[in-house]
Nucleic acid binder design. Structure first.
Length: 264
DNA sequence: CTTGTACCCTGACCGC
DNA sequence: TGCGGTCAGGGTACAA
């Protein structure tokens, strides 16, 4: 569910817990690989994001690593209101609690005592991510460009929604081989990626529905980028750029919506 | 090395 | 109303 903009919004919303100390932990899912003993008494040095991962830096050392996958949520709240599917509750000495809500139990929580070290690709909303970098990644691969964008080892944080949206902005067919893109197309794709991600962050991400598994930012009813989606979830609707009918194809088991007329 | 498939889970939605 | 099939913001462990 959450992609880079949603996780970024979440991490910003969690900043108030920096400097607090973990007072108690309840775990309601045996699949989670952490234990209360490992966390109680640690203080929170920082809260940051890497790709789609949420990292809670612990004092004196280590990171609590959380990935929300398709349906997970992290909520910061002072209320006792019981959210269904809460699999872990971290109570802080400030009185706040962090709730890990994970309906499908696809999300993961783990402790990295030496710090998070997963080899993820470049962060796409930094100055280091240039068209030249993207070109090098694309030219080294013959995989369809949609799948390259989803490969977290190459670029960290893009998911199914923003991959489709970036390709629409760039006017590129998602099935194109990565190494077939020329310089102009790479530049358009770079602009598409960076613009869609930054705009989505400004909109606090995309909230797709009202179920318990739907992402929503803290302190707001929902993100609002869903109101700006050009292709994602718009199969059989008209392309707002050229009027043709949006189509859906399956690539590597995942849907991609695109405009067959103006994405070439 | 790369590419494809099954799988992990649960809920929403659609057609019958 | 109920049932079965399909789909979903993701990643991993395999097989080929």
């Amino acid at each position: 569910m959450p992609e880079l903009p949603e996780v970024e919004t979440l991490v910003r919303g969690l900043q108030p817990i920096v400097g607090t100390t973990i007072a108690a932990v309840e775990i309601h899912d045996a699949r989670l690989t952490v234990s209360a003993d490992q966390l109680c008494g640690a203080s929170l040095r920082d809260v940051r994001r890497r790709g789609k991962y949420v990292l809670l830096g612990l004092e004196p050392h280590g990171d609590l690593v959380i990935h929300l996958r398709m349906s997970g949520r992290l909520c910061l709240d002072r209320s006792e209101s019981e959210i269904p599917y809460t699999r872990m509750t971290i109570t802080l000495d400030s009185g706040d609690s962090v709730y890990f809500v994970n309906p499908r139990r696809l999300g993961t929580v783990s402790l990295c005592p030496e710090g998070f070290d997963k080899p993820l690709g470049i962060e796409p909303v930094t100055a280091e991510f240039t068209a030249v970098v993207l070109e090098a990644l694309a030219h080294a691969s013959r995989t369809p460009i949609k799948q390259l964008l989803l490969d977290q080892r190459k670029i960290a944080g893009i998911g199914n929604i923003y991959a489709a949206e970036a390709l629409w902005r760039a006017g590129l067919d998602p099935r194109r081989r990565s190494n077939s893109l020329d310089g102009e197309e790479i530049s358009a794709l770079h602009a598409g990626i960076t613009s869609v991600l930054s705009e989505a962050i400004d909109q606090l991400g995309t909230t797709l529905g009202n179920s318990v598994s739907d992402y929503r930012p803290s302190g707001a009813a929902s993100g609002t980028y869903q109101n700006h989606l050009a292709v994602y979830g718009r199969e059989n609707k008209p392309c707002e750029r050229c009027g043709a009918t949006i189509r859906r194809v399956i690539q590597a088991g995942r849907s991609t919506c695109f405009c067959p007329a103006c994405q070439t």
